[in-house]
Design a protein around this nucleic acid. Structure first.
Length: 638
RNA sequence: GCCCUCAUAGCUCAGUAGGUAGAGCACCACCAUGGUAAGGUGGGGGUCUCCGGUUCAAAUCCGGAUGAGGGCUCCA
């Protein structure tokens, strides 16, 4: 007999070899029905897994991440089964569960159209009705290889060949369909009550652009129809927040055919952008940063010296001036190095923190462009910190704190990654280790949770990245802290130490917002266009009831504008309701309707965007309220 | 860059047997002077993304280019 400790602490005894499913069954058939997989001693296991020793077991339902994973993984097998029934010659590549559903990569000569997707979807429902049990079996390597090769599944063959010698090779079978898979999977198909194939895309086999492009079908499934409807509604809601859509509706920015990936900022967008930049300047001045600005075009020699010529050329734009070769800067560092080098430096000055809102141009692949999130020219809120090696940790910690302070003002939550040495790198392993450890120590000291992202560092050093989320849960890298021992060598940067000798400084390259453009895009989505008062292009819209009140309205507007408040008047010959609707749709934080009552000396009627409520307030109180909201950068309006 | 899809008025879209374009919103004018999310009437506005082909005739069919969307790859 073995003891199984459940999540709530109860301990139950079973025969050794009992399955996860049977444990659930022993508690209640209802629970067993809802159990998708198990977490055994912290490890995700199949529902068929046999428990041999005393263990802790958590039964995973659809609500649990691991449960969803199993549910969706089975969804992907179901998708593959349907495809194979419709197109027996199709070759299957991989089909995992992802954060929101599943996909399957398929190699088939037919071009999958939306009509075909519908057919596949229907076939999936048909298969569910057939009610297959799902069974798991293992095969020795040679037998597994023979089986998939007999079936002509060349991609599966390659997958098995790449598995380690001692790997357990498992298969899952449902009806006539068998797939190489590590699992876990559901017990049967009956629980899949709602299926939706969402989109179609190309994807390279094994993610390598040299390989064949396969067709990837994305889908999602749920145990209940209502959950699918819910999910689809949420997707619709998220689309309404899309910064590209809001950018148009609120007239903030645009992208034109004449300059793909080169964004245009409109007057309202510029107000937000300028507020953002001046906030950024304030925060940096407070912390001892000095601002510089370096040229956009610099000669080829410089880029050769910095290493960009060899390591970044495919992303750069070039030009010629007086028969010499020049490049448009893709990064601000080389310019900043020259500013450091303009004079000698003493250890007493270090750390020197030079910040630059630097406009860089990068030739990104056309297919990578995405609204403001991925563009070809953008302004990095860059800074280079020149310091002595023993200052690294303290300075990195300060940058982490600055990032946290700034993100908090907007109410962002973020994820942190530590990226290590890439294949295309300069510098010895030893230096890389030292740099990577310095960053790791800073993170550990701050007690920040982070994920390691192997091989994703810059070519000159490892980095810490801060990722923010967009409206549909995609994350975008914004802040980054990159340690660099290379650039100081290449540019022969020095400082005079207390010993009177020349020493080599270390550099931290860092951004907090990342790029103003990307941060702007995320900001739009984060607030769904309902910016806090300090960022709103129009902070208060004054709406006179009729023409007779225009002068009075203008007087109030003038007083507010005098205080630096962005007040506007809408005295167009439209109905009151119309103008209110318009201001509301423009997501103006406050509206002030003025008419006879106000002119006779009563309080003002202040309408608040988020609630639609109207509050009575005196003009002096209103001024104070607005100034306070602006000063504190408060997000709420009440 | 690669795969699939798409491209009609400032915006959102209709135009599905090829016969030289429509709606709503926005804009302009006039009427209405209205108290918290769309008042009424009238008007202007498109060489149907561009280039080429098929045809008596192309927004519509075919080819190409460009741009956009969803992914892949890459990345702030």
């Amino acid at each position: 007999m073995i003891n199984v400790t459940l999540k709530d602490g109860t301990v139950k005894s079973f025969e050794a070899g009992i399955t996860v499913y049977d444990v659930a069954m022993a508690i209640s058939p209802g629970l067993a029905k809802n159990t998708m997989a198990g977490e055994l001693n912290g490890e995700l296991v199949d529902i068929r897994h046999e428990i041999m020793d005393d263990s802790e077991l958590n039964l995973l339902k659809f609500e649990d991440e691991g449960g969803k994973h199993a549910f969706w993984h089975t969804g992907s097998h179901l998708l593959a089964q349907a495809v194979k029934r419709l197109y027996p010659e199709a070759k299957l590549a991989i089909g995992p569960a992802i954060d929101n559903g599943f996909y399957y990569d398929i190699d088939v000569d037919v071009i999958i159209t939306p009509e075909i997707m519908e057919k596949i979807e229907n076939k999936m429902r048909e298969i569910v009705k057939e009610g297959f049990e799902i069974t798991r079996f293992e095969l020795p390597r040679d037998e597994a290889l023979k089986m998939v090769s007999d079936e002509g599944e060349i991609y599966k063959e390659e997958l098995i060949e790449n598995l380690p010698e001692d790997a357990i090779i498992s298969f899952y079978k449902q009806g006539e369909f068998t797939d190489l898979c590590a699992g876990p999977h559901l017990k049967d198909l009956k629980g899949i009550k709602a299926i939706k194939l969402l989109s179609l895309a190309g994807a390279y086999w094994r993610g390598d652009e040299k390989n064949k492009m396969l067709q990837r079908i994305y889908g999602i499934s749920f145990p209940k129809k209502a959950e699918l409807d819910d999910y689809l509604t949420k997707l619709e809601e998220a689309k309404k927040r899309d910064h590209r859509r809001l950018g148009k509706e609120l007239d903030l920015f645009s992208l034109q055919d004449e300059g793909p990936g080169f964004p245009f900022f409109h007057p309202k967008g510029m107000i937000i952008r300028n507020e953002l930049e001046s906030f950024w300047r304030q925060e940096h001045q407070k912390r001892g940063y000095q601002e510089i600005r370096t040229p956009i075009i610099l000669n080829a020699e410089l880029w050769k010296r910095s290493g960009h010529w060899d390591h970044y050329r495919e992303n750069m734009y070039f030009t010629e001036i007086d028969e010499s070769s020049y490049a448009v800067k893709p990064m601000n560092c080389p310019g900043a190095m020259l500013v450091y080098k303009r004079t000698g430096h003493s250890y007493r000055e270090l750390p020197i923190k030079m910040a630059e809102l630097g406009l860089v141009h990068r030739h990104e692949l056309s297919g990578a462009l995405h609204g403001l999130m991925r563009v070809r020219n953008f302004t990095q809120d860059d800074a280079h910190i020149y310091m002595m090696p023993d200052q690294i940790e303290a300075e990195v910690i300060k940058v982490i704190e600055l990032a946290d302070d700034i993100y908090n003002v907007f109410g962002f939550s973020y994820k942190v990654e530590l990226s290590t040495k890439p294949e295309k790198a300069i510098g010895s392993d030893e230096v890389w280790d030292k740099a990577t450890n310095a960053l790791r120590n800073a993170l550990e000291k701050k007690g920040i949770e982070y994920r390691i992202n192997p091989g994703d560092g810059a070519f000159y050093g490892p980095k810490i990245d801060f990722h923010l989320e967009d409206s549909i849960g995609r994350t975008w890298q914004c802040g980054t802290i990159q340690l660099d021992f290379q650039m100081p060598e290449r540019f022969d940067l020095t400082y005079i130490g207390s010993d009177g000798e020349k020493h080599r400084p270390v550099i931290v390259h860092r951004t907090i917002l990342g790029s103003i453009e990307r941060f702007f895009g995320i900001l739009v989505e984060h607030f769904a266009g309902k910016f806090p008062v300090w960022l709103s292009p129009v902070q208060i819209m004054i709406i006179p009831v009729a023409d007779a009140h225009n002068e009075f309205a203008q007087n109030i507007a003038d007083q507010l504008i005098d205080l630096g408040i962005r007040a506007a008047i809408d005295s167009r010959g439209e109905k009151l309701g119309y103008r209110i609707r318009e201001a509301q749709m423009q997501k103006t934080p406050y509206m002030l309707v003025v008419g006879d009552k106000e002119m006779e000396g009563g309080d003002l009627a202040l309408r608040i965007r988020d609630s639609g409520d109207v509050a009575q307030i005196s003009l002096p109180d209103l001024k104070e309220k607005l100034l306070n909201k602006i000063k504190t950068k408060e997000i709420g309006l009440d």
